[in-house]
Write a protein that binds this DNA or RNA. Structure first.
Lengths: 217, 217
DNA sequence: GCAGGATTAGACCACTGGTCTAACTACCGG
DNA sequence: CCGGTAGTTAGACCAGTGGTCTAATCCTGC
């Protein structure tokens, strides 16, 4: 979305600008962040700022883009699993990789967590969709693979399961963050294991083999 | 938080003001909403506005307060269940009551969904905590009751389960909303059943009786 | 009828994201 | 080496933001 002119800038200059912006957005969230302040701190003029980016939204999207690219590079590798064990191994790897990423780089973590704002913010729906869609697609493919090897339950609509899992992962991320801040990295590893166990639990079919129904008892 | 002066106003006047505010916040979210516009539409002057409320945050909190009160009145009743069946019946009632509330009153629904913004927004953390805390307490009590009658799993820390369930419920709410808009009330009832089944599924222990662990297969 | 507190009105402030024009720079043909 | 032109930058300016403050008005009790 950013004007191509921006990419023609010297890479270090680009980096510097995005750095300032990332800092601001991470600290204050999208709405709280001041475009003017970013401009000032980056040492560019308003004219230049609007020459490179279409506006605040655009800069925000660009910052998110680079951040998420970093995450995907680290975690996004996925090869079609041969069997259920392979599936879980890969999913586990991806999940803990993401946790590592999010716990080791606070700024990126805040940016990513801040995306939740974008979903609710009418002005940012475009941005939200742009980043949410590919993520859903990716996870959808992963789940489909999981079904193929018999690891993932079939008694629940695929898209519902996807949404449920994402929501749970996101919510528990905050829970983990709290744990992590209180107990440090090592102790919170156990908590992460518990969370992953829950994810696994939700994603697999109940051993009884019955579709989950609202039971009377 | 609102100044007591506000409650000394004629009830219809209060209602009118909160009505305008609710509309604005529901439509634009907290950050997008214009305090000035609310003031203007409510037909009061700036002086009065700041005489009644401490500021935008305060008005927002007041609006949320009355909205959530409506929800709690409708759904919040809970008596200690005698057995597991009773527990599920009550939980089911509460869940579907909440869904009804959220699906029948769009404005309130948007306000409540908008609360997700508050969580991420640094400026609104105070507001978020104020409303999140009692809700968590309530759900915590419910889960504890569920454990007591053997309906809710014990193999997962109580607070983790709480967070996971809330996150899932919230995420699936958006999913349901989509369904509801596309299929109408009746058809989406089935979807809601599926979601509740998932909730129930997540909250109960696996029949094998084993603690969920990261299985190798 | 008047004093004094409660209430209202609205000018004013620093700041917001965004627009626009004028100036400057760099390159390229003659 | 100059002149013109496209690419780039600077910053004044705009309407709108949430918030403050003072002066006027209202209302009540004496």
């Amino acid at each position: 979305m950013a004007h191509p002119r921006f990419s023609r800038l010297a890479p270090e200059r680009q980096q510097a600008i995005l750095d300032v912006a990332a800092e601001e957005f991470a600290e204050h969230g999208f709405d709280g962040a001041s475009y003017n302040r970013i401009i000032e701190r980056a040492g560019i003029s308003k004219g230049s700022a609007y020459y490179y980016f279409e506006g605040k939204d655009d800069l925000y999207a660009t910052v998110l883009e680079t951040t998420l690219t970093g995450l995907v590079d680290r975690v996004g590798t996925w090869t079609r699993p041969g069997d259920a064990a392979d599936f879980w191994r890969q999913l586990r790897h991806a999940y803990f990789g993401m946790l590592d990423f999010v716990m080791s780089d606070e700024r990126s973590a805040r940016l990513i967590r801040g995306m939740a704002q974008a979903r609710a913010n009418p002005k940012l729906q475009e941005v939200w969709l742009r980043f949410e869609a590919p993520l859903s697609t990716w996870l959808g493919r992963v789940l489909a693979d999981g079904r193929r090897v018999g690891a993932v339950r079939r008694d629940v609509p695929e898209d519902l399961l996807l949404v449920a899992l994402t929501g749970m992962a996101q919510a528990t991320d905050f829970w983990l963050l709290e744990r992590w801040e209180r107990q440090g990295a090592n102790a919170s590893r156990r908590s992460a294991e518990q969370v992953f166990a829950l994810i696994q639990d939700l994603a697999t079919e109940r051993p009884t083999g019955k579709a989950p129904r609202a039971k009377k008892s």
